[in-house]
């Protein structure tokens, strides 16, 4: 009996500590972490296919009800285009170049799930080994932009819709120092937009279409903003680019 209690206690400790993994906190781009003229490669991961999801419709029957109720909009969501997202790499390169870095686009994206894992307790260390980019592309830093979701969502409370649908784009921007394998940027991207005015306008859904492309644009803007380096003067709201402009 005592043995069983001990085992249960041990299992509980393993379970609790196992859940408490380190969550990567956002890292802002700082001039002190990267030298001027550094070679930076910019790569964008695969662009997701637009779709529609129903967060909160958690049971199978709820999901079926939600999907049926939104069948027309869901079918329309699949016709939307997310290819604009990949163009953000050119904006990122231009932004980095204007800040004095030797930035270039990397065409070939390496599947991250196939990169070697790295176990490190150091804060802001990357979980995979990205050095293959240094070997292949001769860069010191790598900016990886991933978009995980692009499409429409409608929140549900089981069977009941909690409001109008919204357009959403989710992603992540990371800059990795390929010499140390540390993050110099780690910024999640979350862009969500509602339809301005009426949303229920089948079959073309102009309001939702606008919202979707506004979300795409907002996501791209967030990516661009995340690669604008801040200095110690950034606390006063002066970025290096705006300082140059004043001069």
């Amino acid at each position: 009996m005592i043995k069983a209690i001990k085992l249960s206690f041990l299992a509980l400790i393993i379970l609790v500590t196992g859940c408490a993994g380190n969550i990567q906190q956002p890292v802002a781009f700082n001039y002190s972490t990267i030298e001027q003229g550094a070679k930076v490669g910019v790569v964008v991961g695969p662009i997701p296919t637009p779709t529609m999801t129903y967060p909160g419709a958690s049971c199978l029957l709820c999901l079926a009800t939600a999907a049926t109720a939104n069948a027309s909009l869901s079918a329309y969501a699949k016709t939307l285009d997310a290819s604009d997202l990949s163009l953000v790499r050119d904006d990122v390169v231009a932004s980095l170049q204007s800040q004095g870095f030797d930035a270039n686009v990397i065409e070939e994206y390496e599947d991250e799930s196939k990169l070697p894992k790295i176990k490190s307790e150091i804060v802001n260390s990357a979980k995979r080994d990205y050095s293959i980019y240094r070997t292949k592309n001769n860069v010191d830093y790598l900016v990886v932009v991933n978009f995980n979701y692009a499409g429409l969502t409608r929140n549900y409370a089981s069977y009941i819709a909690k409001g109008a649908p919204e357009a959403k784009v989710l992603g992540l921007v990371r800059m990795i120092d390929l010499n140390t394998n540390m993050y110099t940027i780690y910024q999640p991207v979350v862009a969500a937009k509602m339809s301005e005015g009426e949303w229920k306008e089948p079959p073309e859904y102009p309001g939702m279409t606008n919202a979707y492309y506004q979300a795409i644009e907002a996501a791209k803007d967030q990516v661009k903003d995340s690669v604008v380096a801040v200095t110690e003067a950034a606390d006063t709201g002066i970025s290096p680019t705006s300082a140059d402009a004043v001069e």
Partner: peptide
Amino acid sequence: ATDPNSPNYGS
């Protein structure tokens, strides 16, 4: 002034 950003839904 419209705010097309996502609202916080309540239950």
